[in-house]
Measured scan of single mutants.
Amino acid sequence: DYEVGESVTVMDGPFATLPATISEVNAEQQKLKVLVSIFGRETPVELTFGQVSKI
């Protein structure tokens, strides 16, 4: 299970290999909103559970 505030690594898509912090969890739809730090700015990205891995 994923929790808000948890650190994960993006495994898929254009942000693969980047660390991210979970900002929202939708367990019903198996989706997460995460904040990816790009060029010093936090960018919100919506991903599925399968696109991230716990650190």
Rank of each mutant, 00 (worst) to 15 (best):
D1T: 14
D1R: 12
D1E: 13
D1C: 13
D1Y: 15
D1A: 13
D1S: 14
Y2H: 04
Y2G: 02
Y2L: 06
Y2V: 03
E3G: 08
E3P: 03
E3A: 13
E3R: 13
E3N: 11
E3V: 14
E3I: 13
E3Q: 14
E3L: 12
V4M: 06
V4C: 06
V4T: 05
V4S: 04
V4E: 05
V4P: 08
G5K: 03
G5H: 04
G5I: 01
G5Q: 03
G5S: 03
G5T: 02
G5W: 04
G5D: 04
G5F: 04
G5Y: 04
E6V: 05
E6I: 06
E6S: 07
E6C: 08
E6K: 05
E6T: 07
S7F: 12
S7E: 14
S7H: 14
S7I: 15
V8C: 05
V8D: 00
V8K: 00
T9W: 15
T9G: 03
T9Y: 13
T9L: 15
V10A: 03
V10E: 00
V10Q: 01
V10N: 00
V10M: 05
V10L: 05
M11T: 12
M11F: 05
M11I: 15
M11S: 08
M11V: 12
M11A: 07
D12M: 09
D12A: 11
D12I: 10
D12W: 12
D12Q: 10
D12S: 13
G13D: 02
G13L: 02
G13I: 02
G13C: 04
G13V: 02
G13F: 03
G13Y: 02
P14F: 06
P14A: 08
P14H: 07
P14C: 09
F15P: 00
F15T: 02
F15M: 05
F15K: 02
F15L: 06
A16P: 02
A16N: 07
A16R: 11
A16T: 07
A16G: 05
A16H: 06
A16S: 09
A16Q: 08
T17M: 11
T17E: 08
T17K: 11
T17C: 13
T17F: 12
L18M: 12
L18C: 11
L18F: 14
L18N: 06
L18R: 09
L18G: 03
L18Q: 08
L18A: 06
P19S: 13
P19K: 13
P19T: 15
P19V: 15
P19A: 11
P19M: 14
P19N: 12
A20D: 01
A20G: 14
A20C: 07
A20E: 01
A20Y: 02
A20M: 03
T21H: 06
T21R: 12
T21I: 15
T21Y: 09
T21K: 12
I22L: 03
I22H: 00
I22S: 01
I22D: 00
I22C: 03
I22K: 00
I22W: 00
S23V: 15
S23I: 15
S23Y: 15
S23Q: 14
S23N: 08
S23C: 14
S23K: 12
S23W: 12
S23A: 13
S23F: 15
E24G: 07
E24T: 06
E24L: 07
E24S: 10
E24V: 08
E24P: 00
E24H: 10
E24K: 05
V25H: 02
V25F: 04
V25E: 01
V25G: 00
V25D: 00
V25L: 06
V25C: 05
V25A: 03
N26G: 04
N26R: 08
N26W: 14
N26F: 13
A27F: 15
A27P: 10
A27S: 12
A27N: 13
A27R: 14
A27H: 14
A27Q: 13
A27T: 12
A27V: 14
E28A: 13
E28Y: 08
E28L: 11
E28H: 10
E28Q: 10
E28N: 09
E28R: 09
Q29L: 12
Q29S: 12
Q29T: 13
Q29V: 09
Q29N: 10
Q29C: 08
Q30S: 09
Q30G: 14
Q30N: 09
Q30R: 14
Q30P: 02
Q30I: 03
K31N: 06
K31A: 06
K31S: 10
K31G: 05
K31T: 14
K31H: 06
K31Y: 09
K31V: 10
L32M: 08
L32K: 01
L32F: 03
K33L: 12
K33D: 03
K33S: 07
K33C: 09
K33R: 10
K33A: 05
V34Y: 00
V34I: 06
V34W: 00
L35K: 07
L35H: 08
L35D: 04
L35Q: 06
L35E: 04
V36T: 03
V36H: 00
V36P: 02
V36S: 01
S37T: 15
S37V: 15
S37G: 08
S37I: 15
S37A: 09
S37M: 11
S37W: 09
S37K: 14
S37R: 13
S37Y: 09
I38H: 10
I38T: 05
I38G: 08
I38E: 09
I38R: 07
I38D: 08
I38Q: 11
I38N: 08
I38S: 08
I38A: 09
F39T: 09
F39H: 14
F39M: 15
F39D: 15
F39K: 12
F39V: 09
F39Q: 14
F39A: 14
F39I: 09
G40H: 04
G40A: 04
G40E: 06
G40C: 08
R41H: 13
R41Q: 14
R41N: 13
R41D: 11
R41W: 12
R41F: 13
R41V: 15
E42K: 07
E42S: 09
E42V: 12
E42H: 08
E42G: 06
E42F: 09
E42P: 10
E42Q: 11
E42C: 13
T43A: 08
T43C: 12
T43L: 13
T43Q: 12
T43F: 15
P44D: 11
P44E: 15
P44Q: 15
P44K: 14
V45E: 04
V45N: 02
V45T: 07
V45C: 07
V45D: 03
V45P: 00
E46G: 04
E46N: 07
E46Y: 10
E46H: 06
E46T: 08
E46M: 07
L47W: 00
L47S: 01
L47R: 01
L47N: 00
L47K: 02
L47A: 03
L47G: 00
L47M: 06
T48R: 08
T48S: 12
T48H: 11
T48I: 07
T48D: 13
F49V: 04
F49N: 04
F49C: 03
F49P: 03
F49W: 09
F49Q: 02
F49H: 03
F49I: 04
F49R: 03
G50C: 08
G50V: 09
G50K: 10
G50I: 10
G50W: 10
Q51E: 07
Q51F: 03
Q51P: 01
Q51H: 04
Q51A: 06
Q51W: 04
Q51L: 04
Q51T: 04
V52N: 00
V52A: 04
V52R: 00
V52P: 00
V52G: 01
V52C: 04
V52T: 03
S53K: 12
S53C: 11
S53G: 09
S53P: 01
S53N: 09
K54T: 05
K54L: 06
K54Y: 05
K54Q: 06
K54P: 07
I55K: 11
I55T: 11
I55Q: 10
I55N: 11
I55M: 10
I55H: 10
